[in-house]
Amino acid sequence: MIEITVISGKGGTGKTSLVASLASLAPKPAVADCDVDAADLHLVLDPQIKESHDFSGGKLAEIIPARCNSCGKCYELCRFGAVIKNENEKPAYTIDPISCEGCGVCSYFCPEKAIAFEPAINGQWYISDTRYGPMVHAKLGIAEENSGKLVALVRDQAKKIAENKNLSYIIVDGPPGIGCPVIASVTGTDYVLIVTEPTLSGEHDLERVMELVNYFKIPAFLCLNKHDINPTMSDKIENLARNAGIKVVGRIRYDRAVTEAQIKKLPLVEFTDAPVATDLKNVWNTLIQEINSLQKGSHN
């Protein structure tokens, strides 16, 4: 079983559209949507939810008014500005759940034991069936923390299912950026596929995301989306990747059919036979060839 995680650094370069087509092209895949705070893959893969679970990534503090004597210890100790002082009210303090970091310091040191510290429900996660195979996805609650923990859980579940069903691939749709949920999406994965676009921002963000995969020593590949909107920049980006030891597995041309496919809720490779679909098939074929030769190399 091979786990491939698709990331981009910059947002909106086409991760989810690419993953939808890879899910369609891969034989026996499991799919994991790890962009848990703005998940979109379900809009194309149309998952039928089989199991739904609450996710608790941490705890939240809450003042129990009947026990609070307004001493202000919590206000003094909280470093996250989450304890709010209410003049002339009883109790004089409340906790803002959005600012609460979940550290528990206020609750631990409250002399009246007046602060409850209980697991919070931060979101939901689902195991679903799609026409391509099982899918694990999630929805982080609005303005919640702990997206990294939820990402780790989604990947873990996808791995268990893939092992049980003896599947060949796990295709992971990652979040944008290089922070907490991205790190949780790439640590321990077999391969990273970076998708970028030929813009100055794309180039700048690619440098940081390549630094990230090198930092975690994960073998990575690159594909260039909308390569024809700036051919000079496309060449520059490919050179940049090669110099960082990252192989380029393909270029995908700009085509408005990408949006049309999204509207029709179909992976692009099923929506059209246009050249852009061939580009995507080439990306998958080249990626698998490269992975197979790496795997052979490591077994010898």
């Binding site: 947002g11 909106g12 848990v36 705070d37 703005a38 959005i98 600012s99 982080l140 609005i142 303005a143 919640e144 923390e145 997206s147 979040p175 944008p176 950026g177 922070g179 949920p181």
Partner: peptide, 14 residues
């Protein structure tokens, strides 16, 4: 702000 709706975005727009 950064994309998304989780803690980095909340820190940016609060």
């Amino acid at each position: 702000a950064s994309p998304g709706t989780s803690c980095p975005v909340v820190a940016a727009i609060k």
